[in-house]
């Protein structure tokens, strides 16, 4: 564990807490893409299958449970909660995310570290996480104005993988045989997808204005 990875995990946790706060405090999920939340639930379920087979540390196991439980709770809330689900922008959240799942599964079958069930699913989860934010970014552009909590949620979600890139650079230079090129390439793509959001987020922060994404 190094500081970059720890900061990345904390930033990721903060993004989830902000989303839970928004949904709980405002009893609304307007501006949030259910499809992105479903993709994240799939990412965590596919990646943390080793939760019961490989014990790495208490921290690692606890965080995996928190990520799986929170992502499923958010999906349940947006689908079933009688008050929250009424505020879901169903007509705006139309990204065909099934194509993302199919493409990532196909890529994972072609490119993975070892052709085993767990490794293919792990690579699938890494590829899917890189593109999971797309429905959310499309929804933000369509819904025009972005409320503060939603903007902060997306910002921290983008920042977490940027910390992980620093972690991979650090591990590359400090550990002899560290080679996580699948994670690194996907992590770079993932963070790059946030580039324009970060730009508009910075502009809105500098001008102290409302976050506006160009349609």
């Amino acid at each position: 564990m190094n500081i970059f990875r720890f900061l990345g995990d904390m930033t990721h946790l903060i993004s989830i807490l902000i989303l839970l706060l928004k949904i709980y405090a405002t009893k609304s999920c307007s501006g949030i893409s259910l499809k992105t939340q479903e993709l994240y639930a799939l990412v965590f379920l596919a990646r943390y299958l080793d939760l019961f087979t490989d014990f790495i540390s208490v921290y690692n196991s606890v965080m995996k449970v928190v990520f799986i439980a929170s992502s499923l709770a958010i999906v349940w809330c947006m689908r079933r909660h009688r008050v929250v689900r009424r505020s879901y922008d169903k007509e705006l959240d139309t990204f065909r995310h099934y194509f993302l799942v199919a493409a990532c599964l196909a890529l994972a079958l072609l490119v993975q570290e070892k052709f085993t069930f767990l490794e293919v699913l792990w690579a699938f989860s890494i590829y899917l996480e890189a593109v999971a934010i797309l429905p959310q970014l499309v929804l933000l552009q369509r819904s025009g104005n972005v409320d503060n909590l939603t903007g902060q949620y997306v910002f921290f979600l983008g920042a977490y993988r940027a910390f992980y890139i620093l972690n991979w650079i650090y591990r590359y230079f400090t550990e002899t045989h560290f080679s996580r090129w699948i994670s690194c390439v996907s992590g770079l793509v993932q963070t790059a997808l946030y580039a324009d959001f970060f730009y508009y987020y910075f502009i809105s922060w500098k001008n102290n204005s409302k976050l506006q994404l160009p349609a």
């Binding site: 990875r5 995990d9 990721h12 990646r47 080793d50 490989d54 790495i56 690692n60 965080m63 995996k64 990520f67 792990w122 992980y164 972690n167 550990e175 045989h177 560290f178 080679s179 996580r180 994670s183």
Partner: peptide
């Protein structure tokens, strides 16, 4: 086995 085999990252 080497660290990079074990998926020690979240």
């Amino acid at each position: 086995n080497s660290t990079n085999d074990v998926k020690d990252e979240l």
